[in-house]
Amino acid sequence: MSVADNTSPPKADPAAALQESPFRRIVSDYMESPLAVIGLMGAAIVIFIAIFAPLISPQNPYDLGAIDILDSLLEPGAKAYTGGTYWLGTDDQGRDMLSAIFYGLRLSIFVGIGSAALAVIVGTTVGLCSAYFGGRVDTLVMRAVDVQISFPTVLIALILLSLLGKGVDKVIMALVIVQWAYYARTVRGTALAELGKEYMEAGRSLALSNLRMIFRHLLPNVLPPLIVIATVQVANAIALEAALSFLGLGLPVTEPSLGLLISNGYDYLLGGKYWISVLPGVALLFTIISINLVGDRLRDVLNPRLQK
């Protein structure tokens, strides 16, 4: 999960941070807000569950041999037919909700982080090149970005998925297409400001190659705003995927993310069987709010205008 480390740098080894003073400042600044620390802990828990879901789940919810239809629609805390307890109840197929939520979370996090990571790569490359080369390329790219951002993300994702069909790869593709423009715009803006600075001129005087200029010298300096957007976009991607899966447009029924679990429980909600829908929703909420808290704090910490 190297991607996760990319998006939340304060989690890095504190011993390494001690040697690097700007990094230490960021970490200590971050820790000043108790709410942000809670968010970071929440995000860490969620990522832990996502990675180790198969090991910590009481049951493999997609192994037909492990689930028992006689145990369907049990309330939270009910005893299983074969012994054991369903702490969060079971769904209409007799699946343990706790395990289903763990696996769903795993998939949601994978889709969220995966799509954000790919979108960062695409958006950053386009944004950097657009700023660096300027001219007609720049105009064309930025016009496309403008047009795309003027349409709501749900709408674009809906159009794309109605064309692409269902599947994890297709959802990720749709989310990348939806998100890349935000990175491209932000990176271009920051890069343009950086290009005017002396170190860029020095690099040009030394006749460094374009590739080296862009990725070795320009890229590290546009990272701070990029990290903030990437964090928030992971949360947005998870929420969007959940909404699309809820509408029946995202993931196939065989690969239930949190959104699909919520959608499955929708029919039972009116009958008073709340847990099938509500509990995956709580997990989704916990995930999104944790990530947003981290992103919110990073925005303050990494904003040079607010630095003491």
């Binding site: 909404a243 009116l270 829908s277 909420l285 999104i288 947003n292």
Partner: peptide, 29 residues
């Protein structure tokens, strides 16, 4: 308002249905 940003709207909708439609029975859903 932070919650308003973070909560996925479809889930809030389900909760509204559950609270005002199913549990309290005040409003049609």
């Amino acid at each position: 308002s932070i919650l308003g940003f973070s909560l996925p709207s479809f889930w809030v909708g389900l909760m509204l249905i559950m609270i005002f439609g199913v549990m309290l029975g005040w409003l049609p859903t």
